[in-house]
Design a protein around this nucleic acid. Sequence first.
DNA 1: TGACATTGTGTATTTCGCACACTATGTTAA
DNA 2: TTAACATAGTGTGCGAAATACACAATGTCA
Lengths: 234, 234
Amino acid sequence: MLSVIFTLRVAILPYSYPYPHPAVTTDIAVFTLRAQKLQLLLVKRASPPFQGQWALPGGFLNIDEELEDCALRELQEETGVTGVYLEQLYTFGKTDRDPRERVISVTYYALTASDRLKVQAASDAADAAWYPLDDLPPLAFDHSSIVELAHQRLVAKLNYSTIAFQFMPETFTLTELQGVYEILLNEQLDKRNFRKWILGLGQIEETGELKRNGNHRPAREYRVKNPDRVEIIR
Amino acid sequence: MLSVIFTLRVAILPYSYPYPHPAVTTDIAVFTLRAQKLQLLLVKRASPPFQGQWALPGGFLNIDEELEDCALRELQEETGVTGVYLEQLYTFGKTDRDPRERVISVTYYALTASDRLKVQAASDAADAAWYPLDDLPPLAFDHSSIVELAHQRLVAKLNYSTIAFQFMPETFTLTELQGVYEILLNEQLDKRNFRKWILGLGQIEETGELKRNGNHRPAREYRVKNPDRVEIIR
DNA sequence: TGACATTGTGTATTTCGCACACTATGTTAA
DNA sequence: TTAACATAGTGTGCGAAATACACAATGTCA
């Protein structure tokens, strides 16, 4: 009839709290802008559960590894992506979120400029690819909730921080920057008001160069004064 | 000379990831307003490490327990406090944050009205008490960082949510409510502007009663329309 | 019934967000 | 060389919201 096999593993652990411990993972929602769309980095799962389904990059925490290092390592191992802006998002721990065992996932979201990217599936995943956020495949586990929360956080932060600069290449024009905000906010912005506002923040400066891009007037190039910090504004 | 005793415990665990798992705890920063001050709920540790030192209430997650339930349970067990407003804060996981073993702490912060409180040290703690936030004793582990972050979050939320209502008793006067904001923001507010603003939010309503409180004109009583929800405003 | 202590109220000013249209300039092709 | 092109770059006016500011109203208590 039906055989139920229940696997018991014996582990020798140096701890002082003699009760079963949950597994801890990190999962990362990496966003970028490609082809005028907000896109999300996914990996195809190489093994069960959810084998063959798309999921966020992520994996188990090593016992002597910092949480953030784990997120960056998994990202690198599974997708080859490095050098992203990373921020902790939320910790998901529903008892039934993983069929194998109790798993607590500390989730992060990350942003990166599309010109920095070399995505390639690495050892731990069968495949890695960018998907437009408005056209995602079904995701494994509770990863849809993670993505939704990450997207909310990202949009909320546009209004009171310089987080959008994380999507920009080293130099850019004001028109390009405005385009980024328009994609993220999903609405058209007024050119004069946008420029007044963004320059008023005092977070970008002219490079002195002009960017030529077609048979028309070239645009001034700007750079972010503090590209590695996300500043709180207002 | 010096004996180093290294305890190894053998655990039989039904999991599929054959590597050592960290312990997972929750810690909770509970705030209330007492004696015109923002105060924090602390417990005195009954056992090592940091035995006898003050710490946030909290403890180990049961393997089949939801994270939030764990926070509420530990709070109840260690301090007797129940019925608070609870929100996830951040997950702390530095490899060296606990001398015993690797511990990932999912932290929460909580708010409660001072009239709801019956604090008493329960089984798991030697003592429990409120301390003014501006006069805290040294805290165990990395709990100072947790408190600092929780306080930041609380103050930030005052500006764009109705979180301050969580400190109010069932009915209150506008003067009392203004006092709460003044304590939390640590600045004086203009009475007319405050009333215009707070009534404009449409989140409180008159009870119809008057509150007598001395030899002077009584004040109208108000209640929160939705006391269990924290609304995002603006 | 009058002194007291706190409640409750309005207006003027400044600041910020938002709507709105034309001139400037480098490129390219005739 | 010059004129058409395509995008870059710029200022002002209006309404809403935030802020500054002072006195009349009311229940209590002696």
